[in-house]
Design a binder for these strands. Structure first.
Lengths: 216, 216
DNA sequence: GTTCTTAAAATTATAGATAAAAACGAATCT
DNA sequence: AGATTCGTTTTTATCTATAATTTTAAGAAC
């Protein structure tokens, strides 16, 4: 989260490109030409370059000096890496958020969870999934941790959208329910363990086709 | 960790500014004026702006649109936050690195540790401390995790250098030795637990003067 | 047919210039 | 006296233009 509302052109380009990359609209490894996007957004290439730097820091693009930037490609190893990082950090966040979780928050989380079960497509489901995690983790009051988790969520979502269509929904929502129940019962260790397993499961899914190329 | 060797002007400015901010040469909250640094580095302000975006992602500066960037200020809460994140992530890295740790690596780590005991000043000690951690964690083979840890190390170092002069050295090096011993004995859980305590200790140090202002 | 060299085209990286927004200060009004 | 408004000045954000570097392609030599 770079800023509250970033009305600057750089911010708009950053968000637009991030959305496209995450949605898989632009294939991994594609060259991103600054003039192209400058023309598309009706801007010069200077803000485009600044947007590239932000995306680079987010891990969505890789930049080779004097050679331009490409959409970051990821293999199954990196997906697992992101999943493990998420597991560690979300558990940390949950530990600190747990004491501040009110019944109202848990009720809202349950509502989001129910909405996720009826999600029409992967995109909508991912939206509610992210909302769920964000809701129960935000009370930890650790902004740097939350932004790092957000970046990891983006990477996860990218994988989720990229070509591989697995059966999504049921199992994870069961996990969500189990987490909420443990939180209501004040069994924080159980909640944390369930959360860790839940997050890692995404990366360890055997059904994932490893047809993603690694070019670096 | 933007690139291997970043000969571009943006890279040079980024490193120079990061060093100064970490070393405490520029006070937290100070405005960073792009023209000023453009002139100092004999460059235009475009690469300066790109450097700002990188530093922003690293958490070293905060940027308000149309208002410029300021050196990020940090209070004791954020120091603890960074310490906890480091603890979680370094433990994760160590768990994956442990199986690949050779005797040669551990010997080198011990040599670095010895060098750290004779460090003349805080700066030199931090250098060896970072080298130690990096050496035993790199074999995990998780690049994203390692760069995130590097960023957290930078934040930690910033706190270490900022005004507060505590007795450094002895206790942490004992921790380092304990970690190495546990690794040699293949007691990975002990090593991980010691590492976590060691990292958190930095942030929890009661001797730290909380005279750092938070302006946000 | 392959490979090396060389030239041309495309693209990146930076500089210089312009417009717009915010900070600062002075003068005026209450 | 204090507050407020208006204008000046500083600084940011962006655009246009230029230099340098890489990639592409063509042609010649082997």
């Amino acid at each position: 989260m770079t800023s509250d509302k970033d009305n600057t052109i750089t911010g708009k380009i950053t968000r637009a490109l991030a959305d496209r990359i995450i949605a898989g609209h632009i294939a991994p490894g594609s060259k991103l030409r600054q003039d192209h996007f400058a023309e598309e957004f009706g801007a010069s290439h200077v803000p485009v370059r600044e947007a590239f730097r932000r995306l680079e820091a987010q891990g969505l693009v890789v930049s080779e000096p004097r050679r331009g930037v490409r959409v970051a490609s990821f293999d199954i190893a990196e997906v697992r890496e992101v999943a493990e990082m998420r597991a560690s950090l979300e558990v940390l966040a949950l530990r600190h958020a747990a004491p501040h979780l009110t019944t109202a928050i848990l009720d809202e989380a349950e509502a989001i969870n129910r909405a996720g079960e009826n999600a029409a497509d992967v995109r909508a489901w991912e939206e509610t999934n992210r909302a769920f995690h964000r809701l129960i983790l935000t009370p930890c009051g650790m902004p740097r941790l939350l932004t790092t988790i957000d970046d990891l969520h983006a990477a996860s979502a990218r994988f989720l959208f990229s070509g591989f269509r697995m059966e999504w929904g049921a199992p994870t929502d069961q996990d969500h329910r189990a987490i909420l129940k443990a939180l209501r019962d004040r069994q924080f260790d159980v909640a944390a363990a369930t959360l860790a397993r839940h997050v890692k499961w995404i990366g360890a899914k055997p059904g994932a086709k490893p047809r993603l190329k690694t070019l670096s």
